[in-house]
């Protein structure tokens, strides 16, 4: 059917051209409007000194560094909270999800209560609550709890010895006149965000896991047990590989949401990507540019996650077929 194929190609090309034209028109109209209103634009600000400080940063950052480096530090801070939170929420969520399928009534109810409670309260409120609980409960820096030699817990966060520092191999946290400084600190902002994101996402992960396992037909388990497989073998060899097919795609979505939800940190003072981009935006006035950058970064993160998910699915597919 060559004619049909040509027609299809033509239609697709027309749609693509139309989309491109629309995009171009949007960009052009925005630029023209901004010019007309005397609003400066351009990405030149990225190489100018940022001029503001970042309270905690995985990457070394000083206010004299460029705005681009500030944004990189923000992205690093996003990943610093998102990756551990993904790990924790997946483990916890899996346990809760399995708990909901447990034959034990109490455990089942507890897990159900967890899911309902966390899923139905807006994340922003949860983060604010965790943050103010954490900051209110912790002792002032001057009365820091010493958990171990050189490990302090206070309103300045959890400070532990770390590599590097001004002189020498190991940087030890010290009680200073002001607060605890030195070493690596997990600030209350970081702890609250990590906790809030992990617990919230775990509720969704639990539902995903529960649904994935429940979707495997009962007959499969019955057959496996009849064939003499143990419960554990049945779970590992029969249930899990089939369940994973249904679990992985929504699970990746949860991980992606978690990464995006990390941007709620602006409310509780953790300097992740959006917080740093907001500050940059406000200092330079380049709103369109900063928002475009944020969108581009999140788009790339999403595409990477989708790609990872596809790869996992393929791998799992092979595994399921072989076993």
């Amino acid at each position: 059917m060559p004619a049909q194929r040509w027609r299809n190609l033509l239609v697709q090309a027309l749609i693509a051209a139309g989309l491109l034209a629309l995009l171009w028109w949007l960009l052009d109209a925005t630029a023209a409007n901004m010019r007309e209103r005397g609003i400066r634009s351009g990405f030149d600000f990225l190489l100018e000194p940022a001029g503001f400080g970042i309270g905690e940063s995985l990457l070394p950052f000083d206010s004299g560094d460029s705005a681009l480096w500030a944004l990189a530090a923000g992205l690093a801070n996003t990943l610093r909270v998102a990756l551990p939170a993904i790990l924790i929420s997946t483990l916890l969520g899996t346990l809760v999800g399995l708990g909901r399928l447990s034959p034990n009534l109490l455990l089942r109810k507890l897990c159900a209560a967890y899911v309902e409670a966390l899923r139905n309260v807006p994340l922003l409120l949860q983060l604010l609550a965790w943050y103010f609980i954490v900051t209110d409960l912790l002792p002032a820096a001057s009365k820091a709890l010493q958990l171990a030699p050189h490990v302090f817990l206070s309103k300045s966060g959890l400070s532990v010895p770390w590599l590097g520092g001004d002189g020498g191999l190991i940087d030890l946290p010290q009680r200073g006149a002001m607060n605890i400084s030195g070493g690596a600190a997990m600030t209350p902002e970081y702890l609250a965000l990590l906790l809030g994101l992990s617990l919230y996402t775990a509720a969704f992960v639990a539902e995903t896991v529960r649904a994935g396992i429940a979707a495997v037909p009962r007959g499969q388990s019955e057959a496996a047990l009849a064939l003499g497989l143990t419960r554990l073998q049945n779970f590992r060899l029969v249930l899990l590989p089939q369940a994973l097919r249904g679990i992985i795609p929504p699970l990746t979505n949860q991980h992606l949401s978690l990464t995006k939800n990390a941007s709620l940190a602006v409310a509780i003072g953790y300097p992740e990507l959006v917080s740093v981009a907001n500050t940059t935006l406000n200092q330079t006035g380049r709103a369109a540019e900063c928002i475009t950058l944020i969108m581009a970064v999140y788009l790339i993160l999403s595409l990477l996650t989708a790609w990872l998910s596809a790869w996992l699915e393929r791998r799992n597919g092979r595994w399921a077929d072989h076993s």
Binding site: G53, E56, L128, Y131, A267, I268, G269, T279
Partner: peptide, 14 residues
């Protein structure tokens, strides 16, 4: 170390 909040209320509460 600046601790930066988007909302005035949250910043003074902290």
């Amino acid at each position: 170390k600046p601790v930066v909040f988007e909302k005035f209320e949250a910043s003074i509460k902290a």
